[in-house]
Design a protein around this nucleic acid. Structure first.
Lengths: 218, 218
DNA sequence: GTCTATAGCAGGATAGAC
DNA sequence: GTCTATCCTGCTATAGAC
């Protein structure tokens, strides 16, 4: 455990973290190794020393940072669900919305996480297989089983998945498309607004537009 | 109207079209001018001759292809709305879902269109201002006024916008995130599945999960 | 308007000293 | 494990012939 070794690990982790921030913000090709190492305050050659090449660094970001973080979010979801007594549809939806929109991540981290995922969906790389196969796919299957008892008996697996994905799409939209959301609504992403978003997603998911029209003419 | 001029215009338009396809698929930095001109079957220098530089070509893609296409989608929305007799909430939502998910665009075009938009939301460039200010912002404002009569009287503008964006987020998800949607549901984007998607979005938007549980135990 | 040829530069990657 | 120096490739952009 010489000083050199400790410094190496710290340096390696700084590279991973800075690389993720930059990849999330601008994408793989727009980011240069020079930028990453400058941000990580280490030498240009460090990326190749620690990760072999730029591509592999990208993959390691998913393996070492993205996946564990996704697991933290899912663990939070489980915890929120356990904390509720009786299992209800509202409780399930609320746990999803809270875990993703508020969840265990900082605002910065959450945005970064969503952006990395969206990039993989837009243009799959090797990381896609891991993201879908290990994390998102199994999670959605689990959600299907959770909501199935509350839905029409004859509803098939695909229809159930469309319901799940509709909820997820809202959560993702409000996490990811912050620029247009802020621009159009005029709101800032502070605690009050994220609370409002959670409430909105829960209500909309349960009742759609009809749940919001109780006081209206319709 | 010499042959040269006709050929020039065709060449310019081929560049625009191929550039959009490549930018949509892989993003600005991942695409090279060499690739674009190769795809457009013209010379490397043609991009600089017609558009000055690569950045400007990107902007022209939005001005000359993206915006007119967005206007075609919105025109289709208007037409679908007009074709309905009495104005209903379901009619409005159905018009949104059909215009975007089925709409006037080919499958390829729709995906490309959504991807360009998402890229601007993730990382705004100069095109963002046009996309939000001229197209998406005004459209969402119009939708707010359309649904307002059907909603609770005290509902504010921001809350109305959140409802609109929830619908749009689903539509965008099912257009844009085709890779994970296909991977997880196992479905292909054929006519039958897009019909199913429209029906799903309409039902979910109107009633959320509760609308789907009519035959269930809850 | 289209082409070839090339300037000029930035990028990823590596060799080798420390 | 970290650094400097450097190779080499591939990029955008332009000059100038046709």
């Amino acid at each position: 455990m010489a000083v050199g070794r400790i410094k190496a690990n710290i340096s390696k982790e700084r590279i991973l973290s800075e690389a993720e921030a930059l990849f999330a913000e601008r994408g793989f090709y727009a980011v240069t190794v020079r930028e990453i190492t400058r941000a990580a305050r280490c030498n240009l050659a460090a990326v190749n020393y620690h990760f072999g090449n730029k591509q592999n660094l990208y993959m390691e970001v998913f393996r070492c940072l993205w996946k564990p973080r996704a697991e933290r979010v899912l663990a939070r979801f489980e915890k929120l669900l356990e904390a509720q007594g009786e299992r209800t549809l509202q409780g399930i939806v609320r746990a999803i919305a809270e875990a993703f929109i508020k969840g265990p991540l900082s605002g910065e981290e959450r945005l970064r996480h969503a952006q990395m995922m969206i990039r993989e969906m837009a243009r799959p790389t090797e990381a896609f297989e891991m993201v879908i196969g290990d994390v998102i796919g199994p999670f959605q299957q689990k959600l299907v089983e959770l909501i199935r008892p509350f839905m029409a008996r004859e509803m098939g697996r695909v229809a159930l998945l469309l319901h799940i994905q509709s909820i997820i799409s809202m959560v993702t939209h409000f996490n990811f498309a912050r620029n247009p959301v802020m621009r159009i609504t005029g709101m800032k992403y502070d605690d009050q607004f994220t609370d409002e978003l959670v409430e909105h997603v829960v209500k909309f998911s349960l009742n759609g537009l009809s749940g919001a029209g109780e006081g209206g003419p319709s």
